[in-house]
Design a protein around this nucleic acid. Structure first.
Length: 813
RNA sequence: GCCGCUGUGGCGGAACAGGCAGACGCAACAGACUUAAAAUCUGUCGAUAGUAACUAUCGUAUCGGUUCAAGUCCGAUCAGCGGCACCA
């Protein structure tokens, strides 16, 4: 047998595809379109690791199969190349980020091509390309013009030693990841996008898309819609009534009679406002400084002991009974959620209960059903109202309605829908991002948009991309960049020096693939029209979008938000970008840990391709386990896949003539065609491969394979292992495989003539029986009883259950 | 902490919608071929007990429930993984 020389074969076919532009796609109205997308990668300096190919191989299989089925398949690729890791690498190694990016893209490209993905490389995009980010900036301008982009003061992580704004990820245990300097929260003015204005639509439209339930659930939780009431508490300061009212948002207005104190966030503006009236202001300020060092995450941890400071000199008035109650500041209340103030009901909220116990505050039971001295009773489905005046005896549900109506009537509050979702912080004080195309004009009195004709506003190509020491973007040091004139009034103005987050470029890239070289528009109506369904009803452009679970909240939500905005301004014609979303599990190291350089368990795909071939790599990545779950890499496991490919290669040695499946293999072939086809569509690649392995075992057991059988076998295997199958197809004289059609099957021919069924007595298998397929209940039962022989003698049959073609269970005493 | 997910042989994993648990592959063991090894081929391969091919009992993280029948459904518990808004 001639050896299976995978290296030669793979290079040959990769060159062939490149030369013939086999996978280049044009808008062909005679074919039905299929747009399949795998999240584009971030080209990190470490090169491709073995986890990267998994989603691309999976979507490549889908793309190749759909092409054989006659679809016009758009399967594009590109680079999400702005971002922090590149910038940090650049700073550390003194190489310009643009150069770092170009190098990384080049090595990723080489690796991706060596695996044989059927991308349409003519549509490759890169978010750091000015021709691309021109349109990212354009979208920002449209948001800005419609009031959806605004500046807002907010806390950022500030490293006191490096003097840079840090990402949450760069803060480790309250210290800077790099220099271990102290990290504090510092207030900065940041560009912010009003995603909250789209909260309800982002929630509602989930019903129209095909996402896994767990993905929908995480989007729903992230948006966090709740209904409740906003309630106003009057405030007495310094012993006299004040005009200030403290508004709180609560989902439990029914428990208002149980509110025994209030808590406001340390950043709450009233703290400053009341400064003069607080006898312990010094202590309050100290606490506020302490809280400023903590992240939201640390602050909301329940396990830690509650802390806080009472505001001496301020009392709030419970509107429902006029009781005067103390006001505290505590870090478990966030300024970013609700109104930044809460009414505390220790009897029925776990956090309030812990706080009340610590500070010896009264706990009043207002819903019966638990023991509020032992723990907060939070089950609102059970129990009736007590100690609550006019609400006594009502259910929680009814009490909510009644108290909300009462508050509205007395103008003390109103029903309110609240979202956990916060506006999108869009500023980064960094170099390696899209410049924000606005200028600050003193004369015009604010931020002014650049005219669209001045886009793209390119990143100045300079030596200095190092952070400044005052927390501004590196762009702030570039006098030539900053100083400009106002496009409206012509007077001197200053450019914005913050850049956009990496999320920006990835929020709309799927659209650009449809029309990647258009310099007049973001996307043309014609191209968009084709990819949203020229032959069928208009539906989201991307038919199938696969990506990691780690992107199911932010990236997915942000891009859905931008798409809806583009819909509102008439750029796109669908409300949603992605019709269907799936996600893949990570590939772990051989030790079962996440692959990382520091753990030393990273496997390089180049080595794997050298030793096992690209087809071997692809096959093993798909065979290793359930695509949607994590799976550890195994160097011995991949041997089995290579062995299988060698057995496939060996089929050429036992090839004989024959235009149709032989009788003994007919059912096996029809079944396998059916299974492989449906398994690909449901991402069950591992069982599709197992079915092909079983089939080849059967083929070898007959000692030969005929041409019809080999042809089908190669077509079924082609999406998984495109190189070896093309080579064998050509060698067998069948022509070029990718111009053929996918294999068909006949449902009738999938069935075996006879099936073996299990015969159980009281649920335990006691015998086997062979029956003709599709036999009725009576025949099946008779066969089953015959198979049992004398085992039922002397027993009383209580019940007989027969499942056609599966089993019979006889309940007997 | 909150939200989501996962738990099946020595290992990766199968099991459509409650119907024979362990498909397919890896590793291991035995045999064939070979001077020998590798490769290849054939066979065995959840546990326990007796044993000749066999039979019985147990077995899908733990405890309990529903059902003729539970890896699958329900309740509780334990363990691990992922996300938590400036990593992408």
């Amino acid at each position: 047998m001639k050896d299976y020389d995978y290296s030669r074969i793979e290079k040959k076919w990769q060159a062939y595809w490149e030369e013939h532009q086999t996978f280049k796609v044009t808008e062909d109205g005679s074919k039905e379109k299929f747009y399949v997308l795998a999240e584009f990668p971030y080209p990190s300096g470490q090169g491709l690791h073995i986890g990267h190919p998994r989603p691309y191989t999976a979507m490549d299989i889908l793309a190749r199969k759909r092409r054989l089925q006659g679809y016009n398949v758009l399967f594009p690729f590109g680079w999400d190349a702005f971002g922090l890791p590149t910038e940090n690498f650049a700073i550390k190694n003194r190489i310009h980020p643009a150069k770092v990016t170009a190098d990384n893209v080049a090595s990723f490209t080489k690796q991706a091509k060596a695996i044989g993905f059927s991308f349409d490389w003519s549509r490759e995009i890169n978010t750091t390309d000015p021709a691309y980010y021109k349109w990212t900036q354009w979208i920002f301008l449209q948001l800005f013009k419609r009031g959806l982009a605004y500046k807002k003061e907010m806390a950022v992580n500030w490293c006191t030693d490096c003097k840079v704004v840090l990402a949450n990820e760069e803060v480790v245990n309250g210290e800077c990841e790099r220099c271990h300097g102290e990290v504090v929260r510092k207030v900065k003015s940041q560009w912010t996008l009003k995603i909250t204005e789209y909260a309800q639509r982002l929630l509602d439209d989930l019903e129209s898309v095909d996402y896994p339930e767990r993905v929908k659930a995480s989007q729903i939780n992230w948006i966090g819609r709740s209904t409740g009431a906003e309630v106003k508490f009057a405030v007495n300061t310094g012993g006299e009534a004040s005009d200030d009212a403290l508004a709180v948002y609560t989902t439990r207005p029914d428990t208002l009679f149980g509110a025994t104190y209030m808590v406001i966030a340390p950043e709450h503006p009233y703290v400053e406002k009341w400064a003069g009236r607080l006898s312990n202001f010094g202590e309050v300020v100290k606490y506020r400084e302490l809280a400023a060092k903590k992240s939201d995450f640390e602050r909301t941890e329940i396990v830690k002991e509650k802390t806080g400071v009472k505001l001496d000199g301020v009392l709030a008035v419970n509107p429902v009974n006029g009781a005067e109650i103390p006001v505290f500041i505590s870090d478990y209340v966030m300024m970013s959620y609700g109104t930044g103030a809460i009414m505390a009901v220790p009897g029925h909220d776990t956090r309030d209960w812990e706080f009340a116990k610590k500070f010896n505050l009264p706990i009043i039971e207002v819903v019966k059903g638990g023991d509020v001295e032992k723990e907060a009773f939070t089950d609102c489905d059970a129990g009736v109202m007590v100690n609550s005046g006019f609400l006594d005896g009502l259910s929680v549900e009814d009490a909510k309605v009644k108290i909300t109506a009462w508050l509205s009537e007395k103008k003390l509050g109103e029903p309110k829908v609240n979202f956990k979702l916060r506006d999108w912080v869009f500023s980064r004080q960094r170099y390696w991002g899209e410049p924000i195309p606005v200028v600050y004009c003193e004369k015009c009195g604010g931020w002014v948009a650049l005219p669209e004709s001045e886009l793209p506003l390119t990143l100045p190509e300079v030596e200095s991309y190092m952070p400044t020491d005052n927390g501004e973007s590196p762009l702030a040091t570039l006098v030539g960049f900053i100083n400009t004139v106002c496009p409206v009034c012509g007077s001197p103005a200053k450019r914005e020096t913050d850049t956009m987050p990496q999320w920006a470029g990835s929020s709309w890239y799927y659209l650009r693939y449809c029309d990647p070289h258009n310099d007049k528009e973001l996307i043309s109506k014609e191209k968009l029209g084709y990819w949203t369904g020229v032959n069928s009803a208009v539906s989201p452009p991307v038919d199938w979008y696969n990506g990691g679970m780690e992107h199911t909240t932010l990236h997915l939500l942000y891009s859905r938000f931008w798409h809806k905005f583009l819909y509102d301004i008439g750029v796109v014609n669908t409300k949603e970008p992605y019709k269907k979303r799936t996600s893949h599990g990570m590939i772990l190291g051989e030790d079962g840990q996440k692959m990382s350089k520091s753990r030393g368990n990273v496997i390089n795909p180049d080595d794997v391709i050298r030793d096992y071939g690209a087809d071997g790599l692809r096959l093993y990545e798909m065979f290793v386990g359930d695509f949607e779950k994590v799976a550890p890499w195994s160097t011995t496991g991949i041997k089995g896949c290579k062995r299988f490919l060698e057995r496939v290669w060996g089929l050429a040695e036992i090839l004989s003539d024959g235009d149709e499946y032989r009788k003994e293999l007919r059912a096996a072939f029809h079944k396998t065609v059916k299974k492989v086809g449906s398994d690909i569509e449901t991402l069950k690649f591992n069982t599709a491969i197992a079915a092909l392995m079983s089939l080849i075992n059967e083929i070898y057991s007959t000692g030969s394979i005929n041409k019809a059988e080999l042809r089908t076998f190669l077509i079924l295997l082609n999406p998984f292992a495109p190189h070896i199958t093309e080579e064998m197809f050509e060698k067998a004289g069948f022509g070029v495989l990718n111009t053929q059609s996918w294999a068909g099957y006949d449902e009738e021919l999938c069935k075996d003539d006879e099936t073996e069924i299990a015969v159980q007595i009281n649920g335990k298998v006691r015998a086997k029986a062979v029956v003709k397929a599709g036999s009725d209940k009576a025949t099946t039962l008779a066969a089953a009883k015959a198979a049992l022989g004398g085992l039922l003698d002397g027993k009383e049959i209580v019940k007989e259950i027969a499942v056609p073609d599966k089993l019979v269970n006889i309940v007997a005493r």
